[in-house]
Nucleic acid binder design. Structure first.
Lengths: 107, 107
DNA sequence: TTTTATAATCGTAATATTGCAATATTACGA
DNA sequence: TCGTAATATTGCAATATTACGATTATAAAA
């Protein structure tokens, strides 16, 4: 057990949960918020700002990146992580439409 | 380790992640979708419809309910779970405003 | 080339989550 | 009250997630 049974659900249902999962950890929300507020951002900034180890921040960043939410421009030693606004906006619309189409018919 | 360090984040950040967590499992998304499509809904319907055991469905339901997303009208043995639209709409607005206020300044 | 700074990866420990069988509880009807 | 149907809870096994120290990889600077 302990394995989420994704195969019993539709692609749409799985997509919603996959998107939500990215935002289900406060560190990842904080990382996105911080990146969005900076002109540019390297991982070390995040370590100081958020208060988790470099390894942990890096792990969370890769989760966010794997979801397609980051564009990384390598600038020498440092790295400029930027939010992929196309994907981000896409996620917003998908979640928002899920909320809007979910109504209550009883009570 | 293994414990999410919530205390290092702001209430706002934690709120976003807490809301997202409810939707981060496909079974919970499926439950909400199914409830929204029915005139009324008892747990047994969900077991047949979703394909998880009664115990598992009941657990997911309590996660959704704990978040404030359900209004349960007990009708004798059976139970009519309904979506709490006030909370649901509130969650939609909170998430949507998070997305809207998160911009990209570089790249 | 060596050093230095930065970020990714590895390995591991701890906790959380998922799922289900078994059992308990609840509420109704006979 | 007894039996039954519906849902909740408990206990447990398996897997996932979180976090971090240590190590590695990479690229600029000395």
């Amino acid at each position: 057990m302990g394995v989420t049974k994704r195969f019993i659900h539709s692609d749409y249902i799985n997509q919603i949960s996959t998107i939500a999962k990215v935002f289900s950890h406060p560190a990842r929300v904080a990382i996105l918020k911080h990146i969005s507020e900076q002109e540019q951002c390297i991982c070390n900034d995040l370590v100081d700002e958020i208060g988790l180890s470099q390894a942990t921040i890096s792990q969370h960043l890769s989760v966010i990146a794997d979801a397609g939410l980051l564009k990384g421009t390598f600038q020498g030693k440092a790295k400029c992580y930027c939010i992929n606004l196309e994907t981000f906006e896409n996620f917003r619309e998908i979640l928002n439409s899920f909320f809007i189409t979910t109504k209550s018919n009883c009570c």
